[in-house]
């Protein structure tokens, strides 16, 4: 009698405790970000600024991708552009490409920006901010280092990144020769 009562109480308290824990865990502790390190980067398709060509992430297999979300209004984005460009030049023949994703701006704005900063890496135009939403981009710049299998190896939120940081992360996604 006594035993079963204690068990009963234990079960009831346990159920309540577990229920509340699950809810709180889901809400506060669990990382619910859409894109997580060591998981596949969500696929998408976007047009490039240059020649209006379609770029699809999943078709880039075999290359490492540095996916950089930016906007011209964001000062740290502007600041890290030269470093990104430099790394692009350094690694594009070694199988890693820098890809910029511009968040919802007009061609004219981005074109003049590209020319001012002498950017040669491809810029994707996320006009509807669809991919920005898909990746749940908060503060910009946000940069994803994606390896040749399409797996996110590193996420850098905020900036500007130093050349060194970019380089270190690129070495992680260099395709094995």
């Amino acid at each position: 009698m006594n035993r079963s009562r204690t068990w009963m109480r234990l079960i009831i308290l346990g159920v309540i405790f577990v229920g509340i824990s699950v809810a709180l865990y889901n809400a506060f502790i669990k990382d619910t970000a859409a894109v997580q390190a060591n998981e596949l980067a969500p696929d998408f398709i976007l047009k490039t600024l240059e020649d209006n060509q379609e770029f699809q992430l999943s078709k880039q297999a075999g290359k490492g991708i540095v996916l950089n979300f930016w906007g011209t209004w964001c000062a740290p984005c502007r600041e890290e552009m030269p470093a990104l460009e430099k790394m692009h030049q350094e690694f594009k023949d070694k199988g890693v490409e820098v890809i910029g994703v511009n968040i919802g701006e007009s061609d004219v704005t981005v074109e003049s920006f590209r020319d001012t900063y002498h950017i040669s890496f491809p810029i994707l135009m996320d006009r509807k901010r669809e991919i920005t939403q898909l990746y749940e981009i908060g503060p910009i710049p946000t940069t994803y280092f994606i390896d040749s299998d399409g797996v996110v190896k590193k996420i850098v939120i905020g900036g500007p990144m130093a050349e060194k940081t970019i380089k270190e992360n690129i070495t992680q996604i260099l395709p094995q020769q």
Binding site: T72, W73, A75, R78, E105, S106, V108, T109, S112
Partner: peptide
């Protein structure tokens, strides 16, 4: 030709 466009202009 529109060379540059700054929707919310300011100087850095």
């Amino acid at each position: 030709k529109m060379l540059e466009y700054y929707p919310d202009f300011e100087f850095t």
